[in-house]
Design a protein around this nucleic acid. Structure first.
Length: 586
DNA sequence: GCCGTTTTCGGCCCGACTGTTTTCAGTCG
């Protein structure tokens, strides 16, 4: 069982408890534990079998630790079984719908015996829902839309999709009359691999109605969700929701912190503030007056200490500024308190790209075009990694064709100076863990990248052993897209990644963070774990055209989310240092 | 249910918008 499964089960438990009307703080405690599990870089199964005490984890106490152990050992949680005798597990999915929370879910279940989203759709058509207390024509219409969106986009949008979807809107907002500044916040600013909805902030003095009116009049809007003096929400034709917040300049920094999130980061910050007698909200940081009456307090009561810049907000709380990519409450606040926020790797640190394809296999551009494009990006070295012959449909390289390619590489080395072109290939890991190339060729290659493209549904043990065997081959340098997941399309292979990373550390094999936004494989947590284990990470684009080389920034963002510094990234090394690494086994 | 430079008990982040409401509950981020 994966950490993700544990997190999902605990979330379901929290959802059902909430519908049941349990103590809200108890529910929050469960959700905090979920966040803790989601942030974990190591498998819970390994921790439990190693006899580690789960209550050491933040937000996990005796009770939740017990639930987790029970779940890992028996596949169930007794507490959850008890609850599901009264209400079906599928009831929790109702809360995934926009506009439906625990109270409405309970009402729908109690009054109409609605047990699932599908049940709800039936009742909506029957016209029974709007007869209920607290429901009306508008809310029924809203739920109808929510079900449509739920079915259309059960997954989330990829970050590259979202960037494309909102580019026009950002231009449109930039010319809104009186708007001084427009910034993207939310998970997009944190550079998460997938985005649920987009948050945009606009700096504007006074009543924001004109700005919101301008925003909701955007011709890319399929529907207006809401509009008020400080906030507007629209849904684009793609189904992507965009929220705009209008904020005065004096509060822009605090609003940016607040709307960038994550929620967990914000809660942690505010809790820290309360301890200092401060109140943090989107309008600023305020010293709470001694005689404050909580019943009568205004959002901007008290002495204003900060608000116009993010740096100021963090500083009043005794923290250094935290890069948005780290704001997940995974230790960044403690680091900021000690002034130990890592110096994260940047796109400018990248000196080479170590996975791409040319017309020798399934690439769209010639080897020379790719090499020149890399040189134009300012790289010092490049590896063209065409597929090996197991990938027959893309005319993968046979040993003979590999040698032919070396002749061409030699010619291009003559013509193109200023960039080192490596002899390389993306060698298939065959079903039994052997490599799809002769040992002679493997030895002569400058860089050997290995990966899986077949038999992706092997059982966990077989898959793990297959990869471990491949990595143990003395010529192997990099394990590419280690989990094989494709975002919103394909789950990772069933494998024991922890063992793979441990082996990588031992064998001095690097692991790839594939920068293609469809993959981003490894993910942020996994890459962080690689760092912890001392495994070198390579950020590669897997480009099939010069344009694909530009995906590097997505990989760098993911690496930053995983706390990687330049020293953790193999292709941030200078050519000399990188070459030294290549000769590490000599 | 969790947690502790104020605590082993008594707190736990906070404001905006919507819809169905005659004064506010529910939902969201």
């Amino acid at each position: 069982m994966e950490n993700l499964d544990v997190a999902r089960t605990l979330t379901t438990l929290a959802d059902l408890l909430e519908i049941q009307g349990a103590n809200p703080f108890r529910i929050r405690a469960y959700r905090n534990a979920v966040n803790s599990v989601n942030s974990l870089s190591r498998p819970l199964t390994a921790m439990v079998s190693a006899g580690e005490d789960l209550t050491e984890l933040p937000g996990v106490g005796k009770s939740v630790a017990h639930h987790i152990v029970e779940l890992l050992e028996t596949g169930r949680i007794e507490r959850l079984d008890e609850i599901t005798t009264d209400m079906p597990v599928t009831l929790a999915e109702l809360m995934r719908l926009d506009g439906v929370g625990p109270k409405k879910a309970k009402k729908l279940f109690d009054e109409l015996d609605v047990k699932s989203v599908d049940d709800l759709a039936v009742e909506l058509d029957a016209g029974t829902v709007q007869e209920l207390d607290g429901f009306g024509v508008r809310s029924v219409e809203k739920i109808r839309h929510a079900i449509e969106d739920y079915r259309k986009h059960i997954g989330r949008f990829q970050i590259n999709e979202v960037e494309m979807l909102i580019a026009g809107l950002l231009e449109y907002l930039a010319v809104a009359p009186g708007v001084e500044k427009v910034e993207v916040a939310g998970s997009l600013r944190r550079r998460k691999e997938t985005i649920g909805d987009v948050d945009i902030l606009a700096a504007y003095e006074g009543d924001g109605t004109p700005v919101v009116d301008h925003f909701v009049a955007f011709d890319g809007a399929a529907r207006i969700v809401g509009a008020g003096p400080t906030k507007g929400s629209i849904v684009l034709h793609s189904g992507l929701q965009v929220d705009l917040r209008v904020i005065p300049t004096r509060s822009f920094g605090s609003a940016l912190v607040y709307f960038t999130g994550s929620k967990e980061h914000n809660v942690a910050i505010r809790t820290g503030a309360v301890r200092r007698g401060l109140r943090v909200n989107e309008w600023g940081v305020f010293r709470v007056p001694e005689d404050a009456d909580p019943e009568e307090s205004d959002k901007e009561d008290g002495e204003r200490l900060a608000g116009d810049t993010e740096e100021g907000v963090y500083a009043t709380l005794g923290l250094t500024w935290v890069p948005p990519v780290l704001r997940e409450n995974r230790g960044e606040i403690e680091a900021a308190r000690c002034g130990e926020v890592p110096e994260l790797v940047t796109l400018a640190d990248i000196r080479g790209d170590l996975q791409m394809h040319s017309t020798w296999s399934d690439g769209k551009a010639t080897l020379e075009e790719m090499a020149v494009a890399c040189k134009d990006l300012g790289y010092e070295y490049v590896a063209i990694t065409d597929h090996s012959q197991a990938m027959a449909m893309v005319q993968g390289l046979t040993p003979a064709r590999t040698r032919e390619q070396w002749v061409e590489i030699e010619e291009i080395r003559e013509r193109v100076d200023g960039i080192a072109i490596l002899r390389s290939a993306e060698i298939d890991i065959l079903k039994d863990g052997s490599l799809d190339m002769t040992d002679e060729i493997l030895e002569e290659l400058d860089l050997v990248v290995v990966s899986i493209h077949s038999f992706m549904d092997l059982p966990r043990k077989a898959m793990t052993e297959r990869i471990l065997k491949a990595m143990a081959h003395p010529s192997v340098d990099i394990l590419a897209h280690p989990t094989g997941r494709r975002i919103n399309r394909r789950e990772p292979y069933d494998l024991d990644l922890e063992s793979v990373l441990e082996a990588a550390a031992e064998l001095d094999v690097a692991v790839e963070l594939n920068a293609n936004p469809n993959r981003l494989d490894l993910n942020d947590i996994q890459v962080h774990r690689a760092k912890e284990l001392g495994v070198q990470v390579v950020i590669s684009t897997d480009a099939h055209s010069p344009r694909g080389l530009l995906d590097m920034r997505f990989g760098v963002d993911q690496a930053r989310r995983g706390w990687l510094e330049a020293g953790d990234v193999l292709n941030a090394r200078s050519l000399v240092d990188f070459t030294t690494w290549l000769g590490r086994r000599a």
